[in-house]
Simulated scan of single mutants.
Amino acid sequence: MIQFKLEGEFIPLIALLKATALVQSGGEAQSIVEEGLVKVNGITEDRKRLKVRLGDKVEFLSQTIEVI
């Protein structure tokens, strides 16, 4: 599990995927979200601009990101 320390109120989903190095670019992050390959709190998410907040869990490629 990857723990990501949130510095503000939220982080956009695609920015979180880039910040944790699970993707190489913003374009790649947008594509995988649009393809339905990312889950947020157990629900498949297709909104690229989703605001990920404290306590959320994001799953992608058998990795889990916990926002702390």
Rank of each mutant, 00 (worst) to 15 (best):
M1C: 09
M1D: 10
M1P: 15
M1S: 12
M1Q: 12
I2T: 11
I2E: 06
I2S: 11
Q3A: 13
Q3T: 14
Q3H: 15
F4V: 01
F4M: 03
F4L: 04
K5V: 12
K5G: 07
K5Q: 13
L6P: 15
L6Q: 08
G8D: 09
G8W: 06
G8Q: 13
E9K: 14
E9G: 05
F10I: 00
L13A: 00
A15R: 12
A15S: 13
A15G: 08
L16I: 05
L17Q: 04
L17D: 03
L17T: 03
K18Y: 11
A19E: 15
A19W: 15
T20H: 09
A21P: 08
A21N: 15
A21C: 11
A21L: 10
L22D: 02
L22I: 00
V23F: 08
Q24F: 14
Q24Y: 10
Q24L: 12
Q24A: 15
S25C: 05
G27T: 04
G27D: 10
G27P: 09
G27S: 09
G27Q: 04
E28G: 09
A29V: 01
A29P: 08
A29H: 02
S31I: 06
S31D: 06
I32Q: 03
I32M: 03
I32G: 04
I32R: 02
I32N: 03
V33D: 00
V33L: 01
V33G: 00
E34T: 08
E35N: 10
E35Q: 12
E35L: 07
G36M: 07
G36C: 09
G36W: 03
G36H: 06
G36T: 01
G36K: 04
V38T: 01
V38Y: 00
V38K: 00
V38Q: 00
K39E: 06
V40F: 01
N41L: 11
N41A: 05
G42V: 09
G42L: 13
I43A: 14
I43W: 14
T44G: 03
T44Y: 07
T44L: 08
T44D: 02
E45C: 02
E45Q: 05
E45W: 01
D46N: 15
R47E: 04
R47D: 04
K48I: 13
K48V: 09
K48Q: 06
R49M: 14
R49V: 09
R49Q: 14
R49P: 06
L50E: 03
K51L: 07
K51V: 03
V52A: 04
V52S: 05
R53P: 11
R53L: 11
L54G: 10
L54Q: 12
L54R: 14
G55I: 07
G55R: 05
G55L: 09
G55S: 11
D56K: 03
D56F: 08
K57Y: 07
K57P: 14
K57N: 11
V58R: 01
V58T: 04
E59V: 00
E59D: 06
F60A: 00
Q63C: 06
Q63R: 08
Q63E: 05
Q63V: 02
T64D: 01
T64G: 04
I65Y: 13
I65Q: 09
I65G: 10
E66H: 11
E66R: 15
V67P: 15
I68C: 09
